[in-house]
Lab assay of single mutants.
Amino acid sequence: MQRVNMIMAESPGLITICLLGYLLSAECTVFLDHENANKILNRPKRYNSGKLEEFVQGNLERECMEEKCSFEEAREVFENTERTTEFWKQYVDGDQCESNPCLNGGSCKDDINSYECWCPFGFEGKNCELDVTCNIKNGRCEQFCKNSADNKVVCSCTEGYRLAENQKSCEPAVPFPCGRVSVSQTSKLTRAETVFPDVDYVNSTEAETILDNITQSTQSFNDFTRVVGGEDAKPGQFPWQVVLNGKVDAFCGGSIVNEKWIVTAAHCVETGVKITVVAGEHNIEETEHTEQKRNVIRIIPHHNYNAAINKYNHDIALLELDEPLVLNSYVTPICIADKEYTNIFLKFGSGYVSGWGRVFHKGRSALVLQYLRVPLVDRATCLRSTKFTIYNNMFCAGFHEGGRDSCQGDSGGPHVTEVEGTSFLTGIISWGEECAMKGKYGIYTKVSRYVNWIKEKTKLT
């Protein structure tokens, strides 16, 4: 034993070699072989497995989906700052455009905790909710729209109204504003409101030439003092309507412009014939205590009207009353817009006519005020429907199939267009061939041609 100890002390290297040989010859039971080890760690190889990531292109799944990435790591994937920024906006807080917040056709661009709407022409605001041009839906104005110097929408209202708090709607500024039905039992019968379409306001006024200088022999019209197929109006439903009495009662109609003036057809009036105007009328054979009678003290036909040349060209006249009318729910003026808007309103496509005229061709006159909704007829169809001249200051309205029309005794009465609950004068009943005849239409004086003249002559002093 002493000898062994001496050998170990003198030859430590020998001992180490012996131990190493023993270990190498022993069977290893701690580690699995290569094949079995792979069965336990069965993990798919990654895209760049075996390579240094710093030297390969980034992978979106590896960089940002398996674990949260930084902007720089995302930049490695896209290799483009702009594309990385677009991805980053949604990656950080989701897609803010998912709810489609942009209105009126706006395009949404996502941002971090926010979004941006790219608005089409005519709109602005956070969600493109603000109209900035009158060309689109009248700028959301209830009545009139004008573009300011910086191309912003400025709404306005006709006389007797003021802008509401929203700067879009119009509200009454006087007790009985024009064009409004205020009798409670008839307010439910107000005709369907007309909503502004998209309009090209630059070209809204037709490029028409008034044929002022045409000389033409007097034409022989049949029954051209021209509501057939209409309905009984309720008291106060058309408070701007008046009836004219002269040699015979209810020979023509008219509309209240203001307390002192009536507008009617020029062919209705004769110099030297006494005319009485009755406002607030409903049943011409009954006294309903809503009527107001006034005498006409002055007749002003349009300066281009000449019955000797043509009885229905420039067929418009103004009547001055001896005493002002007292405005109330049964006696209310009709609204008159400017030339541009009167023309736009007419193009809405349908209007209402009213009167006490004959209820059928050569038949009896109506006792109760009649009204009828009539569609506008395109000019080409209008011209083809008659052998008589249709001037540019006239328009056609009615039904091709016949059966409904204005008729004798309705002449001078109103053709009105309702705009968001307020009625505007767009025409004056003038003439036609018979009444409600198939293929024939009622012919009306186009008020847009005469609004400046009306307003100039009827100013209240």
Rank of each mutant, 00 (worst) to 15 (best):
T422S: 05
S11P: 08
L32Y: 14
R191S: 11
L321T: 02
A37T: 15
F123M: 13
I300S: 02
F238C: 04
P235M: 09
C396P: 02
R364A: 14
R140D: 09
K274P: 08
R384K: 14
L19W: 04
Y305T: 02
K293C: 04
N306T: 03
R3G: 07
R226F: 09
Y352R: 06
G105R: 12
S11Q: 04
T264P: 00
F123S: 13
T458Q: 02
I334F: 01
N393A: 09
A279E: 00
W118K: 12
G122Q: 09
S220H: 06
K146T: 11
S423R: 13
F395Y: 04
G229H: 04
A307L: 08
E98W: 09
L41V: 15
E159S: 05
Y450M: 02
C268T: 01
E434P: 15
G50A: 11
V447H: 00
C128K: 04
T386E: 15
R384M: 12
L460W: 14
A233N: 10
N104C: 02
M8S: 13
P175Y: 05
H289W: 08
L41T: 09
K168Y: 10
N147R: 12
V419C: 04
E456T: 09
V242T: 03
T381A: 12
V181E: 06
F78N: 15
I284A: 08
T215L: 06
S406T: 14
Y441E: 01
I112V: 11
A337K: 01
F395W: 02
E86K: 15
F424G: 00
K387G: 11
V243M: 04
C102S: 00
S385A: 09
F144V: 01
I136N: 08
E288N: 07
T381S: 12
K274M: 04
Y305E: 01
A436R: 12
S220V: 10
V183C: 05
M65P: 15
I262F: 02
R298C: 02
V202Q: 09
F345D: 01
H415N: 00
T209C: 14
F224S: 07
I210E: 12
N59D: 11
R404P: 08
F345N: 02
C335M: 00
I275C: 03
Y441K: 03
P12D: 04
R75N: 14
C170Y: 00
E129G: 11
F224A: 06
S204W: 07
T417G: 00
N38H: 11
L52Q: 11
R62C: 07
S411L: 12
S25L: 15
R3C: 08
E231L: 05
E340Q: 13
F238W: 07
S70N: 10
M6T: 14
E66I: 04
A265D: 00
V30R: 12
L383Y: 12
L319W: 02
T81N: 06
D223H: 09
E76D: 15
E231C: 12
F144L: 04
C252P: 01
D95F: 14
C128D: 03
F144A: 00
S114V: 05
R140V: 10
T29N: 10
C134V: 02
P172N: 06
R83A: 13
V451Y: 10
N222R: 05
C155Y: 00
D198G: 09
K339G: 04
N283K: 04
F388M: 14
Q143D: 00
N295A: 06
S423D: 03
H314P: 02
K234V: 11
N59T: 06
E320K: 03
G58V: 15
C145K: 01
E231W: 07
L163P: 04
N452V: 07
Q57G: 13
G50L: 08
K362H: 12
C335W: 00
G439Q: 04
E434R: 04
V4P: 06
L369W: 10
L211H: 10
K459Y: 12
R364D: 12
S182K: 04
G280Y: 02
N42G: 05
E82H: 14
Q185V: 07
C108D: 01
V331N: 01
V227R: 13
R364C: 08
N36A: 11
P172M: 04
Q96R: 15
R43K: 13
K455E: 07
E54W: 05
D33Q: 06
V326K: 13
E35N: 14
S114T: 09
G122K: 07
L130N: 11
P239Y: 00
Q185E: 10
S148V: 08
K51A: 14
F348H: 04
V183F: 07
C141R: 00
Y341V: 13
Q237A: 10
D322F: 01
R358L: 09
G122R: 10
K146C: 04
G122C: 02
N147S: 07
N113F: 03
R298L: 02
D315Y: 01
